[in-house]
């Protein structure tokens, strides 16, 4: 059996008496499309924070391609190919989309520490940034400052910045958060278009989108994994129906 690209072992995290992660064990094979679902407060975003190193776990390990990365700083994990996006836009308001993605490309290529050469001389990095923006339909507005972009475009830019880091594993924290329902499937088309070399784990509340785009589902409740399985298995699981789907009708 091949080693999973991303694996966690016994991740635990408490905030005081509140348990936000309890014995989290996941293993994502290469190219998988996983959805992480669960009621609000189940610890989904916390799990992404733990995996990316933005929150320190109390116990447990995170392995990327079989290597323990638990002690690496967040930036170093990104360098290894573990990349995330944010539920709330975490962008560079006064940089243009082109500048922002070029910055991310330069960081990946290890060129962003160079101060003696001017940015326009980095043709390859700029071309690559522009290609990424083109595939996400942002090329037409790439000169405008991020803060002037439409909200949906900003959500796409979240993904563009992550793709610029050449992820092996991409963790998408509610990519369509705040986007009107009729536009969110557009956004998920962009997610579906992500190269099949990249392993994707995404958080999403809209069950229709989850069942359409995920090949496997992980259900979290109260900081623990309740069940993992294919969409069909999850849909027929009585426990999931009880704790999650039952109350998600109005969500």
């Amino acid at each position: 059996m091949t080693t999973p690209v991303l694996q966690t072992r016994g991740l635990n995290k408490n905030f005081g008496s509140l348990v936000v992660a309890r014995g989290i064990e996941i293993a994502l094979p290469k190219g998988a499309r996983y959805a992480l679902i669960g009621p609000n407060g189940a610890g989904k975003t916390t799990l992404i924070n733990l995996i990316t190193g933005m929150t320190r776990p109390d116990a447990g390990q995170i392995l990327l391609e079989g290597e323990d990365i638990s002690t690496l700083a967040p930036a170093a994990r990104v360098k290894r190919g573990l990349v995330r996006t944010f539920q709330i836009n975490t962008l560079f308001p006064n940089l243009s989309a082109l500048e922002a993605v070029t910055l991310a490309v330069c960081e990946r290529r290890g060129e962003a520490g160079t101060w003696w050469r001017s940015l326009p001389s980095y043709g390859q990095a700029i071309e690559e940034a522009h290609r990424i923006l083109t595939t996400l339909m942002l090329a037409g507005d790439c000169e405008r400052p991020t803060r002037q972009l439409a909200y949906g475009q900003q959500r796409l830019l979240e993904i563009a910045l992550a793709l610029a880091a050449h992820p092996k594993v991409l963790l998408l924290d509610e990519p369509a958060a705040g986007v009107p329902k009729d536009e969110s499937s557009e956004l998920f088309k962009a997610v579906a278009g992500i190269s099949s070399d990249i392993t994707v784990l995404f958080i999403e509340h809209d069950m229709e989108l989850v069942f359409r785009f995920a090949t496997r589902l992980i259900v979290m409740v109260a900081g623990a994994i309740l069940v993992e399985g294919t969409p069909a298995e999850i849909a027929n699981d009585q426990r999931v129906r009880d704790v999650y789907l039952g109350q998600a009708h109005h969500g």
């Binding site: 975490t90 330069c106 960081e107 101060w115 001017s118």
Partner: peptide, 26 residues
Amino acid sequence: RLVNSPFGLSLRGIRENPRRMPAIGS
């Protein structure tokens, strides 16, 4: 030259959003 370099761009990135910078590997 410095502020117009990739390094200068990364400084502006820090100014604009220090939370995002680690997430792009900076």
